[in-house]
Design a protein around this nucleic acid. Structure first.
Lengths: 168, 168
DNA sequence: GCAAATGGTTTTATAATGCAACCACACGAG
DNA sequence: CTCGTGTGGTTGCATTATAAAACCATTTGC
């Protein structure tokens, strides 16, 4: 069975496609956090988990997969390693500002489930305002002037060319 | 996509983990749209793409993968098939309300890239208010009374028990 | 009817995932 | 120091998902 370009040294790179160089910001996000586990790890990190064992225990995922994901998240600047806060020689994984910035994405995912899931009664938790203990509103997208926008009120424009600073 | 089930006793050596029965709404969302291509397909659908060939051409993905994804999205009620709008015998894939409800998730992903990407100058487009042509604000999370909340202002509570209708 | 386009499926190869076993190091007790 | 245990991984191997390309059935244009 001759396969195209097989044994002659020309390896066919059948890779999982990468969006790293894509100009679409959504694709670029997915490049960093667009897999099953990464967002769940970040979710747990937002909850305060820090140790390898904590993530592994809470998420019930294979240790090798967790290790790969943690490395990837560190590489992407979403997590950072730090010496353990309890004085031991172990290390911890803590969210960077970039990692904490994922919060709105998680809220959007949560609210989508709350609104459209076929069995919403199976959802165990509600995101509430800490002060009042009342559920939060749906995320709002607003114009510069404050008007609430829905999808039809928006459009995409090419990014304006970067303004060059005059010989700073 | 991972096989559904796994919680209902019909479990047959489930390999790739499924979050279908998870009580976390984020996991439930990821079950439906938590893979590389689904969100990009939805993005293109929001832009108006409808035909198999349009998706395949625009996203540059393998046809078999596209076919699997489209089927999955239809199964999840995110897309629906419809007779072609141009009168031909072909079919089209159109977003359901549930599919259009993904919009805020895409906005959140976009804004995360805009804020934290290492090379934001590579991002080609800006989401703007259609009326004014001005960039939109960051998504805002608000309390019931209108206060803008950040992550620290929120917490999770168990979902209140469903109110039972007074029988009869 | 025939060629080309459309919308897939099948085949085959590679990469990712998952489980279990293994291993290095830290730490505590003796 | 040595043993035993917990933590934090890595390594093999089997299974699954993804990918490219070939193939195929309809539909459309002519």
């Amino acid at each position: 069975m001759p396969k195209p370009g097989g044994r002659d040294g020309t390896e066919t790179m059948v890779k999982r496609t990468s969006f790293a160089g894509d100009t679409c910001p959504i694709a670029r996000s997915l490049e960093a956090i667009g897999d099953w586990w990464s967002l769940l790890i970040i979710r747990e990190a937002l909850f305060g988990l820090r140790r390898f064992g904590e993530f592994q225990n809470k998420l019930g995922m294979a240790k090798n997969i967790l290790a790969v994901r943690l490395r990837s998240l560190v590489d992407h600047g979403i997590l950072a390693t730090a010496p353990a806060s309890d004085g031991s020689a172990y290390q911890e994984y803590v969210l960077t500002p970039k990692g904490r910035g994922v919060f709105p994405i998680l809220v959007a995912l949560r609210q989508w489930s709350e609104e459209f899931d076929d069995n919403p009664e199976e959802i165990a938790t509600v995101l509430v305002d800490r002060d009042k203990g009342r559920p939060v509103r749906k995320l709002e997208l607003r114009a510069e002037d404050g008007r609430v926008l829905n999808m039809a009120d928006t459009t995409l424009k090419p990014r304006p060319a970067p303004r060059r600073r005059s010989a700073g």
